[in-house]
Design a protein around this nucleic acid. Sequence first.
DNA 1: GAGTGGTCTAGACCACTGC
DNA 2: CAGTGGTCTAGACCACTCA
Lengths: 252, 252
Amino acid sequence: MQNTLLKEYRQQGRANSTTRSLAYERLRRAIQKSIEAGALEPGHSLPSERDLAKLLSLSRVTVRKAIAGLVDEGVLTQRHGAGTFVAARIVKSFSKLTSFTDDLRARGLKPRSVFFEKSIGEVTPDEAMALNLSPGAKVIRLHRLRYAGDEPLAIERTTIPQDLVADPDMVEDSLYEALDKTHGRPTRALQRLRAIAFDADQAKLLGLPLGSPGLFIERRAFLASGRVVEFTRSFYRGDAYDFVAELQSDTD
Amino acid sequence: MQNTLLKEYRQQGRANSTTRSLAYERLRRAIQKSIEAGALEPGHSLPSERDLAKLLSLSRVTVRKAIAGLVDEGVLTQRHGAGTFVAARIVKSFSKLTSFTDDLRARGLKPRSVFFEKSIGEVTPDEAMALNLSPGAKVIRLHRLRYAGDEPLAIERTTIPQDLVADPDMVEDSLYEALDKTHGRPTRALQRLRAIAFDADQAKLLGLPLGSPGLFIERRAFLASGRVVEFTRSFYRGDAYDFVAELQSDTD
DNA sequence: GAGTGGTCTAGACCACTGC
DNA sequence: CAGTGGTCTAGACCACTCA
């Protein structure tokens, strides 16, 4: 834990031979890496600011600056008098388009998918509408349970035009990583969200009591060209997610 | 300019007779007020950090902390070697959002409020933090049930600095309409949202079964000067609220 | 009461800007 | 070149948490 952090900190120093490295940036990256590597798990505490300062031969002010950055990204949380902890809830920006897989990795969680379905078929009228496809077009359908480590987090149904991905088996964990290799990631998305209560099937899959609160999210993601790459309907566990949005208040 | 800032800083000190006030919060508020009062206009520069520190008998670190908060809200901008300036225009990427309330109006439904509480009081520590107010400052509290026609939709608790609205009775249905008549509407807001299950009291108020799904939304709305005008915690019926956002992929 | 984060100080050196 | 913000230090005291 401390050792990993110290190692990462030194590593970060070496990384930038060309550029001058800032102590607080180095420490910040070191903490991030330690979390991603699993040395710091959600809910666990970091060494105290004073200990970190001593360990790394930094002043406490510098340590605080490094931590502050991660706190306002939602990666760490601090409790006065108690300590600094790796955030347990997943705070997801509702304004930035990020991949589920990347989100979890940034928090030191291991994303994993269990597929119920990976198939090719003809679009339904619904899907054709959502994806702007002609009737008769072929689509790939993914239906899966998404995990963070051993914890099921969400149920997800995704539909993708077949000409964009070709083979459903190209998608292992991350759709966006598969897209990287072909048409690139989407640059824009429209998302709609509401609260729901899980029905019997959903609750069972997620290991929650019937009627537990969750979030239903529907997303259409677009390529730079304007093409719809993805139509996804997800059910997220309410106890694991926080969504943050920055918005412009309407003139009316 | 400098004079106004100094005066505002002292003013902020007086507000809290009982509790200790934080220097960086005081300075931050003083800068905001100076902007609102027109003593600092967009594009103009602030005194240098060193000068501010000397003027207010603070350390430079403290002055920087006050400024940093306003910089990341987009109210001020800093240019290395040049100075600190009042932002000419706030350039940030916002999601466009439509709330259920907006949809209501668009659909011709009548929003209506039943108030449980409309009062004036002193800020709680929580509220002071959320609104960037000095301890001891007066706030208006609104606690209400919001309807669309005869359907209860949400339970809402709003806290507003008193100097922005003066009289709680000025708010009939829309807080923003009341603000139109005084300081103008907020230009930006930060929202955090998660799924919850309604407890007994909430369920009863909304006429729903215990444990029904809902959205808990916490919102802080800002004026162009960076001042927080509103801190609201709402509980929306899950079956009635749709949250729509457009997301952008970020290069960083 | 020991340990934690939260605030604050009075210095210092560096990198950049603009005259 | 003088002046600015950017980084960093080595202290200090306070307020809070938890056993």
